[in-house]
Design a protein around this nucleic acid. Sequence first.
DNA 1: ATATTCCGCGCAATCGATTACATCAATAAA
DNA 2: TTTATTGATGTAATCGATTGCGCGGAATAT
Lengths: 343, 343
Amino acid sequence: MANKKTTIHDIARELEITASTVSRALKDHPRISESTKKSVLAMAEEMNYQPNSIAAALRRGTSNLVGIIIPTADRNFFASVVRGVEDVLKDTSYNVIICQSDDSLEKEKSNIKALLEAQVDGIFASYAKETTNFDHYKTVIKRGIPLILFDRIQESFDVDAVGVDDYVGAYKATEHLIEQGCKKIVHFAGPDNVSIYRDRKRGYEEALKRNNMLVDEDLILTSDLKLETGRSLTREIISGGNIPDAIFSASDYSAMGAMEILKKEGYKIPEDVAIVGFSNESFTSLVDPALSTVDQHSKKMGQFTANMFLERMKNKAATHTPSKTILNPELIIRKSSLRAENP
Amino acid sequence: MANKKTTIHDIARELEITASTVSRALKDHPRISESTKKSVLAMAEEMNYQPNSIAAALRRGTSNLVGIIIPTADRNFFASVVRGVEDVLKDTSYNVIICQSDDSLEKEKSNIKALLEAQVDGIFASYAKETTNFDHYKTVIKRGIPLILFDRIQESFDVDAVGVDDYVGAYKATEHLIEQGCKKIVHFAGPDNVSIYRDRKRGYEEALKRNNMLVDEDLILTSDLKLETGRSLTREIISGGNIPDAIFSASDYSAMGAMEILKKEGYKIPEDVAIVGFSNESFTSLVDPALSTVDQHSKKMGQFTANMFLERMKNKAATHTPSKTILNPELIIRKSSLRAENP
DNA sequence: ATATTCCGCGCAATCGATTACATCAATAAA
DNA sequence: TTTATTGATGTAATCGATTGCGCGGAATAT
């Protein structure tokens, strides 16, 4: 039942020509007559020929595959970046392999190894929270394989990258809270080794300073930013009795956790505590009150990444100078931070 | 800078042995002496050797790749299935290529074509909503490539499949609403060509019948089940003036849309209208009131799918008889459907 | 009529790893 | 001592598509 795959040799034999002619005919080579092209195409159709891209890849030395490494696929942000990448690549000959690192350095390494073995033509990656050493990424570059980092960017690592200006996003968010009359703004910060979280904290601090407010280290709570952590941090805040009038969280998840607990404890959002998250996760528009957040243009980020790769493949010969593209994030103001008495 | 890739031939030359010996040494072949193994391994390390799995794939005729086709990656359910698959496959030599069909038949076809050309060893797919004809899937089977359908299953199509019993899930959900005292239960149904939606509707109808309630066709609203559609359907219901006391939606999204509008219009959930969705999307536990829903064991579904594939690869020789595995869904009761006066 | 160009196609090597079969030396068995 | 056996490696074909080079003949140029 399982018919053997037909190869160009099978077609050639049937037509009493050589495989090279078949190959050329299939690729619409100018030196092949129209008549042979037609008969080859017809025979290919008849024999249900399907090219073996592995063989072609081996010969050409290029697989037409690109690998994407993301921490997890079930975060709206990353899924959306992937969509952006696919949007751009679907019109090309490239296919996409997606690997998840689960924010683990080990998995990230093994993902890279697998992608390298699969001879991918390029790797797009958002590195794991655990990652502080980039040697495994440098291996990729040494191999001459285009590497593009997205979202999570490391300044000290000279490589192509696409990200958003997390600093600006955080600055906008914090300033918005200040404009809403908030005086005591807690910041849920992320791990310091990840640049985006450092930048968000810096944006928060700068916004305070420029508005003549003091940066109180006690108001900066560093964590893994998960939903449950947002809950527990908030419980601690409440039991501490020192209730802030706003929370700017570096993640929508921990912001959500905070909102849940605050509501449960009878605090009004945004009147008692205004809340702004970060990432524009899909649930933020669905919860009540809708959560203000910072949109990172995730899809556009994926598109930029893919286009940067394509551009680079065009001028393969030229020596490459890494560049970073920084998108401007957008503050999305919803009910969780919009106080009625303000304009 | 970009060092040429080192091959087993390079290692062989350096060690003054042949490539075959290197190949065997690397694979820990029993007929190779320990000493050569050691020197080969050392030299491989020194020369930074990375196997070319494409070459191996061509030779062996097996790529160690499996393709997953999902409608979209930014739905929690599908992302979660993918995680389940990866959980199982990460301990094997298989890598995963993810393709998104966007619920479009055309894209689904081109995804299959690409995966076939990539010589994947297996394809796991949840077919597009648009798909009514399965000829492109039959091509996969004809080629002798293991195909496993998940979630969306077609009974008339004799193929391996893993799904949940949508009928049972819907039945449980509807019966739960009845137990809560609901008398007039609207059902948001999905496209009839997709079996899971047919099954959910059947579960809804059966639950009504067995509880001596009439199935009123006017209460069954068929749509694409999107968030916005949930909103507009609900607006229509309200403007029609004939308010039900419960909604069982075949999708969390349209359930969410309904809940939004109902709340906005002043209806109390669940007192005035109880709501149950389907799929246990991540936002369902975050909204207020938390949305009751049906969990489909998405991750487990992915694990089953991958294991089914692995099992099949083990007995490759044996003639294969397709089988379907049906998981039992779990009703998750949250506030949106739990009326206080009931136990 | 001879020289040149070009068209259409075949020949054969190549990409890197794998593997059935052959080989050769050393050891064990007779 | 001779033969059988085993252990360790080499030889060469193979997977399927691609491509530089070459060749015969037709078309065009001189």
